[in-house]
């Protein structure tokens, strides 16, 4: 597998146009496609919808990459697009009867009284709701650490953020999610 390109390299390549743009865009999809898909699929719980959303996200990325100023890491920017696109799609698809949904991505182990009274579907939905309430950076770090199981060093490279800051973000994200779940399931 070829070495991942850094953000600056990708953007410079893309802005050169023609075949260079194609190469840059393919590098983006190769480096970030899976994690974007996973993020989207976790919320949409359906491959076809995730496929459509991912395609829309990538089209937006392609159309707007030349305007990307580099104020954040490239992945942060794409994560934001994916998050908005997914939530908008879910909002439009509230009438999702008839769509085959994935099995819940979470299972519950016995031993926690609050969780014992709930179902995997419920805890999965509640977790996604909780993530949606988080500030973007915390949600992003949580996604990469908890679901993608990336090392802090990898996330640090990807997001241009120190490992210490990432650990703090992840800790706060977990705390807030926990509070959200307990509040929601206790009532």
């Amino acid at each position: 597998m070829s070495k991942p390109l850094d953000d600056k390299h990708i953007i410079d390549l893309f802005n050169r146009g023609g075949k260079h743009s194609d190469l840059a865009f393919k590098a983006i999809v190769s480096q970030f496609g899976e994690v974007l898909y996973s993020q989207i699929r976790g919320i949409t719980k359906n491959h076809e919808i995730a496929n459509d959303v991912l395609q829309n996200v990538l089209i937006k990325v392609y159309q707007n990459l030349s305007e990307f100023k580099g104020d954040s890491a490239l992945y942060t920017w794409m994560y934001r697009i994916a998050r908005n696109e997914t939530l908008n799609t879910i909002e439009k698809e509230k009438r999702r009867a008839g769509v085959d949904l994935d099995a819940p991505i979470l299972e519950i182990k016995a031993g926690h009284s609050v969780l014992d009274g709930t179902t995997p579907e419920m805890i999965t939905d509640t977790l996604q709701e909780a993530i949606a309430t988080l500030p973007e950076k915390q949600a992003l770090v949580f996604q990469l650490k908890y679901f993608e199981e990336l090392k802090y060093s990898e996330i640090s490279t990807r997001l241009n953020t120190s490992e210490g800051a990432l650990k703090a973000n992840f800790h706060h994200a977990k705390q807030k999610i926990q509070e959200f779940i307990l509040n929601k399931l206790n009532h």
Partner: peptide, 11 residues
């Protein structure tokens, strides 16, 4: 910790 009682399923 609630996360100790939740297990992720491979997607």
């Amino acid at each position: 910790d609630i996360f100790d009682f939740i297990e992720k399923r491979k997607v």
